[in-house]
């Protein structure tokens, strides 16, 4: 099984709602207003939204066939679980070797630990894809 969130950049409208919904999904309450206005700590979005001139798009972990991050992790804390590249929070020490090798820049640096898209593993379709108003984000499961 392989999961991939693709951004069709022709139709990315740069609204960044994917980031908003990603934040909400990974907040404590799961409610957009509570998450943004009342929860004290909110982890940054797991998406990497980028733009250049007319082109923009969201980058999330692409679940590479042969992930470089898995091989570069100095703690062996990254593995492929059910088709998703997953970082073991307990073991990550924030050495950023994964950040150094990810060809998409999809792994982000948290306070002390690396984090990335978890493909909303408890849902059938990730929230960014569900909430993309122009269906620029497409979820592919093989």
């Amino acid at each position: 099984m392989k999961r991939r969130v693709m951004c069709n950049e022709d139709f990315c409208i740069g609204c960044r709602l994917c980031e908003v919904h990603c934040n909400v999904k990974h907040s404590k309450s799961g409610d957009i207003i509570l998450a943004y206005k009342y929860e004290e700590e909110r982890e940054p979005s797991r998406m990497a939204f980028e733009e250049k001139d007319y082109v923009c798009g969201s980058i999330v972990c692409m679940n590479c066939k042969d992930p470089l991050c898995v091989k570069a992790c100095s703690m062996g804390a990254i593995e492929i679980k059910e088709g998703t590249v997953a970082i073991d929070d307990e073991r990550c020490v924030g050495c950023w070797m994964c950040v150094m090798v990810c060809p998409f820049g999809a792994i982000k640096r948290g306070d002390k630990k690396a984090f990335k898209c978890d493909h909303c593993h408890d849902m059938e379709t990730p929230v960014c894809v569900l909430n993309c108003p122009n269906k620029a984000l497409v979820y592919e499961v093989d």
């Binding site: 082109v55 980058i59 590479c64 066939k65 060809p103 998409f104 592919e140």
Partner: peptide
């Protein structure tokens, strides 16, 4: 800031293909 979209489109697509497979 380092940005994937700085790369030309064909290069980006090549990268996506080579690491994650064909683009539908």
């Amino acid at each position: 800031k380092i940005n994937f979209y700085v790369l030309p489109r064909n290069v980006r697509e090549d990268i996506i293909k080579s690491y994650t497979g064909e683009i539908k």
